[in-house]
């Protein structure tokens, strides 16, 4: 049944400082709402349990994309349309720019925020694989100060993360050192059509002297939260890309991927798709670098 708007309080203090003070004054009592494309859907279905909501929408301190000397900082309140329109993101973080175009329709992308996508923490979140492949760090903020952690430590379980009750996700920092890396992004299956399992892989690799000097494989839907495939990366790192490397990588993916799925065949299907995606990336790396 549809939710009743009068059952929820919503306020918009308008500045980051005011929101942080509110969160600190009653830890756990207030739920942030940014673009609302998760929370308002829950509300429509009468599933929104939060009674007190505080709006982050359009707070300038959270909605920015800044190109700094060594990284690009994306505010948690930046929308996926903001990301798609940003020239620096398009040039230096093409996997993130491409993934931004996958977050539902244009109308969804103009409200959906990067922060909301990450804090919601769906195992299938579309921005996550690219952030993992680009070695993103995320900055959390509260009146106690700010702390920065590697993104791959942010999710701690199914829809669980490091945020303390008085904290907000403030920004995502993307290092500007991937210009020489080769990239890969592919998603298999659709988000809403639940009949087909979905797997997504974003990957970056640096090839030096015909061997893999760096590799990052960021995956969605292969664990209870978006995750790097560390053991698979290890099986590839330092090697030339040969049929043996590909074979070892496939074996590693099949062992490492642990999709949450009650229907076993679906989990098995996802593991195999993941192995195919890793293989596809490695085969692309075997080809000479495409000229821009």
């Amino acid at each position: 049944m549809r939710g009743n708007p009068e059952a929820h309080e919503l306020i918009a203090p308008g500045s980051l400082a005011a929101v942080l003070h509110l969160l600190a004054s009653e830890p756990g009592a207030w739920t942030p709402i940014a673009g609302g494309t998760e929370l308002m859907v829950a509300h429509a279905a009468g599933r929104l349990t939060a009674r007190k909501l505080v709006s982050l929408w359009n707070i300038p301190d959270l909605r920015f994309i800044r190109v700094e000397a060594n990284s690009i900082a994306v505010g948690a309140g930046a929308t996926f349309i903001d990301l798609r329109r940003n020239a620096a993101v398009a040039a230096e973080l093409p996997l993130l720019a491409q993934a931004a175009g996958w977050i539902g329709s244009i109308a969804n992308q103009s409200r959906a925020t990067l922060g909301g996508n990450l804090v919601n923490g769906s195992p299938a979140a579309d921005s996550s694989p690219a952030l993992l492949a680009y070695d993103a760090r995320i900055e959390l903020v509260s009146i106690r100060g700010s702390r920065t952690v590697p993104y791959d430590k942010f999710h701690t379980g199914y829809k669980r993360n490091l945020l303390a009750p008085d904290e907000l996700l403030f920004a995502v920092h993307l290092p500007r050192r991937f210009a020489r890396h080769r990239g890969y992004l592919r998603k298999v299956g659709t988000r809403r059509a639940m009949a087909i399992a979905k797997v997504a892989l974003a990957a970056t690799a640096l090839i030096e002297n015909e061997t893999v000097a760096e590799i990052r494989l960021g995956a969605a839907s292969l664990a209870p939260f978006p995750t790097r495939l560390y053991r698979t990366e290890e099986s590839i790192l330092g090697n030339a890309i040969t049929e043996e490397t590909i074979c070892a990588a496939r074996t590693a993916v099949l062992a490492e991927a642990a999709p949450i799925d009650d229907i076993r065949s679906a989990a098995e299907f996802r593991r195999r798709v993941a192995a195919n995606l890793v293989e596809e990336f490695l085969r692309e790396l075997m080809k000479p670098e495409p000229r821009p």
Binding site: P5, L10, I11, A12, I33, G35, G36, T37, M40, V41, A44, L53, S55, W57, N58, I81, S105, I106, A107, N108, S110, R111
Partner: peptide, 21 residues
């Protein structure tokens, strides 16, 4: 998308916007 309107020059779904925003 049947509820689409434009807000500050962007296309949005008005069914997902709390009016305070």
């Amino acid at each position: 998308g049947s509820c689409s309107v434009r807000m500050n020059g962007e296309l949005v779904n008005s069914c997902l916007i709390p009016v305070l925003q």
